[in-house]
Design a protein around this nucleic acid. Structure first.
Length: 189
DNA sequence: TGCCTGATGTTCT
DNA sequence: GAACATCAGGCAC
């Protein structure tokens, strides 16, 4: 993964750039690969972002260098995974909302308690559960095992759908959710 | 199909 | 002490 590429981007540019890219996870001695199909952009000018209120112990990773993983815990039981983007010192990240299994799907199904098909990874917390992403991986460098982000050629604008974000209470009007058009693995609207 | 609610930890006010 | 970038299960329609 070329970290410099993500460092030079705004959160919304990076959110689009990450669509179609792949995550490779080492899990139980197996390799699992998924393709990112849905993202949301957050940065420190954005009232819905954790970095909006400044750098704290919790959000420290978001202000760090691009290409690292920011994991946070929410609603008492769920984790969500973000890819840190932008320049160091600027609090920006891209939330990974949904992905499409490419390899190791059976292992993902097991981890999701027998859920199958699109239900395995069509939501940010589901994705984390399936890929065993917990706060242990907060701050993880995505160039290294056991979780590697592999960039793929940027998708054409024509296959990217852009809408407002989901599941937030602040700055709902910002059209910073992106997903691959007509992909069944995106989360519910 | 679609609303309602319970589960439940961490962070910040 | 409240808010929170959620999910799954239950029940009404």
């Amino acid at each position: 993964m070329n970290r410099n590429e993500l460092a030079g981007m705004s959160a919304s540019e990076a959110a689009k750039r990450l669509l179609g890219c792949e995550l490779e996870r080492e899990l139980d001695g197996q390799t699992v690969r998924v393709r990112i199909v849905e993202t949301e952009a957050y940065d420190e000018t954005d009232a819905a972002s954790h970095s909006y209120k400044g750098r704290t112990q919790r959000t420290d990773v978001m202000f760090g260098s691009a290409g690292h993983l920011y994991v946070y815990f929410t609603y008492g039981m769920h984790y969500c995974a973000n890819v840190v983007v932008g320049n160091e010192g600027y609090g920006a990240a891209v939330l990974l909302r949904a992905a499409q299994p490419l390899e190791g799907e059976q292992l993902l199904e097991r981890r999701r308690n027998g859920k199958t098909g699109v239900d395995i990874t069509n939501g940010p917390a589901k994705l984390c559960q399936a890929l065993a992403i917990t706060k242990q991986l907060n701050g993880h460098n995505l160039e290294k095992t056991p979780l590697i982000l592999r960039l793929r050629p940027a998708l054409k604008e024509s296959v990217i759908e852009q809408t407002t974000r989901i599941g937030i209470s602040q700055a709902k009007e910002m059209p910073w959710r992106f997903y691959i058009r007509a992909n069944p693995y995106i989360s519910a609207k």
